[in-house]
């Protein structure tokens, strides 16, 4: 007998990090050992997280597959399910279905430089790749991260940003929008595209990973293009509304693709071929 594809794993909230007043990161551990042992995923994949009685919500797995025994997710309190999730405490049980979707082709990037360009709450999907790459650091050349948020308060993963900043093998530029700086802010102030242009990382033997709000994407693409990145070498993850995550409910359908099963990772060469319905 086949299994019920809508049946989630039961996960225990092992740790809660308050990233910003409305963004939280959960570390989730399997409640059943055999499920923990057989579970595997790759960078870029996502899942359906559920609060029983409220429903399911879709986010990426924000932790790296190189870190075993748990997964992490980062979410903003916004709708019915994320508000209910945010009300959970350490030790509570929630549901997780996944992993779903395709992955960032990290193994194809061996020997290349990686440029991460991201803003606000769009860092989580790339954080998975960043840690994955850092845990296999020898496989890659330069690793550059340009991350921006509206304000210092809105920066997520503050501890990890400090950790990456301190590493000699990572170049991290963290910026905040004008007006979002605090008195003790030492980093640049400005929007991601401008800061990226100034940093001007090399596109030679390099791939870019771009995730952020639509306006940031729109303004960053020409900058990347000027730097010499071709659309085939710029990757992103699309975030259409989903319910099932497995290509059936119809919500995330864009052209001939379902973002859930054919994505969420696309190159901009592929995105440019899609109808503008994302």
């Amino acid at each position: 007998m086949e299994t019920n594809v809508y049946k989630p794993y039961l996960m225990r909230i092992a740790e809660i990090t308050e990233e910003t007043p409305d963004v939280r990161t959960f570390r989730l551990e399997f409640t059943k050992e055999d499920e923990a042992a057989s579970f595997s995923y790759k960078a870029g994949q996502f899942g359906e997280y559920s609060v029983f009685g409220e429903g399911e919500s879709t986010f990426c797995i924000a932790s790296s597959p190189t870190r075993k025994g748990y997964i992490e997710c980062t979410f903003r309190k916004a709708g019915r399910v994320t508000k209910a999730l945010a009300a959970r405490e350490k030790g509570d049980t929630i549901g997780f279905r996944g992993p779903y979707g395709n992955t960032f082709p990290l193994s194809d990037w061996k020997g290349k430089s990686l440029l991460f360009v991201t803003g606000g709450i769009a860092l989580p999907p790339l954080r998975c790749v960043i840690w994955n790459a850092l845990d296999l650091r020898d496989n890659f050349k330069d690793i550059t991260i340009v991350y921006g948020a509206r304000s210092v308060q809105d920066l997520v993963y503050k501890k990890e940003l400090a950790e990456w900043d301190a590493r000699p093998d990572v170049k991290l530029i963290t910026t905040v929008d004008p007006g979002g700086e605090t008195t003790d802010w030492k980093g640049p102030v400005g929007f991601v595209p401008t800061v990226l242009e100034k940093a001007s990382p090399s596109s030679a033997d390099s791939v870019a990973l771009l995730c952020g709000p639509p306006i940031m994407i729109k303004l960053t693409l020409p900058v990347l293009s000027n730097l010499g990145f071709s659309p085939e070498n710029i990757y992103t993850t699309l975030e259409n509304r989903m319910k099932c995550g497995i290509g059936k409910c119809g919500r995330c359908n864009v052209g001939k693709y379902f973002v859930c099963k054919d994505g969420p990772v696309f190159t901009f060469a592929q995105v440019n071929e899609l109808p503008p319905e994302y």
Partner: peptide, 10 residues
């Protein structure tokens, strides 16, 4: 037509 929604009821 097969599109669907998923809803919890308690």
């Amino acid at each position: 037509c097969t599109c669907f929604d998923i809803q919890d009821e308690t």
